[in-house]
Design a binder for these strands. Structure first.
Lengths: 149, 149
DNA sequence: TATTGTTATACTCTATAACTATA
DNA sequence: TATAGTTATAGAGTATAACAATA
């Protein structure tokens, strides 16, 4: 009666891990006092991967959320001066999102938070195990719709 | 500049996978039309693990949420007749949560949703890889505060 | 007519704080 | 005074739908 199926159990563990990752990430972000939420942090990181400022629609697709969700995130990041909305001269419907200097600085500090969070999450695993896990996650995540950066 | 650190990258992939798991789980629950949210589903499953009806406080601890969060979940499940609040005769402050017959039936159907969701998530992995992943997740999840059922 | 982003709205999940009723 | 659960409230995250401006 208690999840005898290995795959269901595996999914169960994945969900438990999921909650743990969220909790730890949130705590580490709060501890750094960067004034940034996990979703905003994700958008900022995504922004760092682009060579030139992406459109709202690009971000929505990359983040796998509806465009409306990006609006809220960019609102928050713009209010705290970490990104800038820039109109696209070539197409006046389009808005491009740029990292500000402050945003770039924050991104750097974020990296520290991310590393310490990763460290806490992965603490029980050896180097070899981490490598193995990375390989499996690669297969899992890239097997679906998301593209690499 | 693009997450050169393997651990940070690993945590990143974990987060991406996390969102995917959530999305897939939500979709499968909706497709089954069980009228149940992911968090309610989790509470129901947790309930299935107990030999005798737990208190609200027990559930809160097991689910790693504050007691207030359990109230809302039980409200929803009770409104749709899947669980029952039963006063504890030994301590009138305590409320024990029981699965109803309908709740038990739902739990059974939930299993199907969980299996198909697990299948979709794990599709890119071979049997061996799934076993390996299960072992790594075991280490990760049990390495922390959460107890096994 | 299709695309881009927005305003308006709503729902899930979870948290803190203050309260009630026990013990 | 401490415990168990609740009401009240808030905020993060994300969704759908209707709309404005532009193409």
């Amino acid at each position: 009666m208690t999840t005898p199926d290995p795959d269901a159990l595996l999914a169960e563990q994945l969900l438990r891990l999921t909650r743990r990752v969220h909790r730890i990430q949130k705590r580490h972000l709060e501890q750094r006092g960067l004034g940034i939420t996990p979703a905003q942090s994700r958008l900022l990181r995504t922004l760092g991967h682009y060579g030139s400022p992406p459109r709202m629609a690009d971000l929505a697709e990359r983040l796998e959320v509806v465009p409306r969700a990006v609006t809220t995130l960019v609102d928050g990041l713009e209010a705290s001066g970490k990104v800038r909305r820039v109109p696209d001269p070539a197409n006046r419907r389009v808005i491009r999102i740029e990292l500000t200097d402050h945003g770039r600085t924050t991104l750097g500090k974020l990296r520290g938070a991310r590393l310490s969070a990763a460290d806490e999450i992965l603490a029980p695993l050896s180097e070899d195990q981490r490598r193995m896990l990375a390989g499996l996650l690669d297969t899992l995540v890239d097997g679906d719709g998301e593209r690499a950066c």
